[in-house]
C-alpha cells in the first residue's frame, strides 16, 4: 500500500504504524460534567466501516509525522492524506470559535441586564 505523504510524496505503508480511528484526535475535556462518559466513548467506542475511514498513521520510519489517512477499507484506495497536527489545530480553532460567540452573547445578556437594572433604579 502506498501513502501519499503531504510533504514527502508517495511512501510505502511498511514505513508506517497504524493507530486506528482518527477520532482519537478529539480528546474530551477532562473537566466537563460528563467527562467520565466522554472519555469512555473516546477510548473504547469506534466505528468500523466497510468503506471510507479516517485513520491515524505514524510515519515511524520516516519524518515521525502523524497523518490522517482517509482510506477505503474495502478497496484499500487512499483518498486523502493530511498532517494530523493541521487537523488537530483546525479542530481546536473550531472549538474555540464555538465557545467564543457564546461569551459574546453572555456579555450582551449581561449588558442588557445592566440596562434593565439601571432602568429599574
Amino acid at each position: 500500500m502506498i501513502i501519499n505523504h503531504p510533504h514527502l510524496g508517495p511512501r510505502d505503508a511498511s514505513e508506517f504504524t497504524i493507530l486506528g480511528d482518527a477520532s482519537l484526535i478529539n480528546r474530551p475535556d477532562w473537566q466537563a460534567r460528563d467527562a467520565d462518559d466522554a472519555f469512555y466513548n473516546y477510548q473504547y467506542l469506534r466505528d468500523n466501516p466497510a468503506g471510507l475511514h479516517r485513520e491515524l498513521w505514524f510515519h515511524e520510519q520516516g519524518d515521525r509525522s502523524w497523518l490522517v489517512v482517509t482510506r477505503d477499507t474495502v478497496t484499500h484506495a487512499v483518498i486523502a492524506v493530511a498532517l494530523a497536527s493541521d487537523i488537530a489545530k483546525a479542530a481546536k480553532a473550531k472549538t474555540a470559535q464555538k465557545t467564543a460567540p457564546k461569551k459574546v452573547a453572555a456579555k450582551k445578556t449581561a449588558a442588557k441586564k445592566a440596562v434593565i437594572k439601571r432602568n429599574a433604579t
Binding site: I25, L56, F58, S65, W66, S85, A88, K89, K92
Partner: peptide, 14 residues
C-alpha cells in the same frame, strides 16, 4: 516516543 509524538501532534499541537 511514538506516544509522545501522538500527544504532541494530535492532542496538543499548540
Amino acid at each position: 516516543f511514538r506516544h509522545l509524538e501522538f500527544c504532541r501532534q494530535c492532542l496538543w499541537p499548540e
